[in-house]
């Protein structure tokens, strides 16, 4: 049956169905362990309110972390690279054509002379 065959990748293999079964088994085990825990959740009490050291809860818009605040550290660490690569996308048509012609010339040198 070809549907359940593993994907051979040269040196290894990959069988998504076996993987899925393993994940399901693990999920069942996790569920069983979780069942044994103590149910301490009480709806409608102060237990469900966000706890911010007694401060009032901020407005909804203030809670959401917006996209440009994410990965600040990553971008800051690679500043040297990004300071070069981002301005390279100048948006000027002439530069884009020049990149194209330059790459063609570079390929020409590589293919014809090597």
């Amino acid at each position: 049956m070809t549907l359940v065959e593993s994907l051979s990748t040269g040196t290894g293999f990959w069988n998504p169905l076996a993987w899925l079964i393993a994940v399901l088994v693990a999920a069942v085990i996790v569920y069983l362990i979780r069942q044994r825990g103590e149910s301490g959740y009480k709806k409608g009490t102060t237990q469900t309110v966000p706890f911010i050291s007694g401060n009032p809860e901020p407005e909804k818009e203030m809670v959401h972390v917006r996209a440009s605040n994410l990965y600040w550290g990553y971008l800051d660490a690679l500043k040297g690279y990004y300071n070069f690569i981002v301005p390279a996308h100048t948006g000027v048509l002439n530069d884009y054509v020049l990149w194209y012609l330059g790459t063609t010339a570079a390929l020409f040198v590589v293919v014809v002379f090597i």
């Binding site: 070809t2 549907l3 065959e5 593993s6 994907l7 051979s8 990959w14 998504p16 169905l17 899925l20």
Partner: peptide
């Protein structure tokens, strides 16, 4: 889910 079938 069925990569080998597609590849074959």
């Amino acid at each position: 889910l069925f990569p080998q079938a597609v590849v074959d």
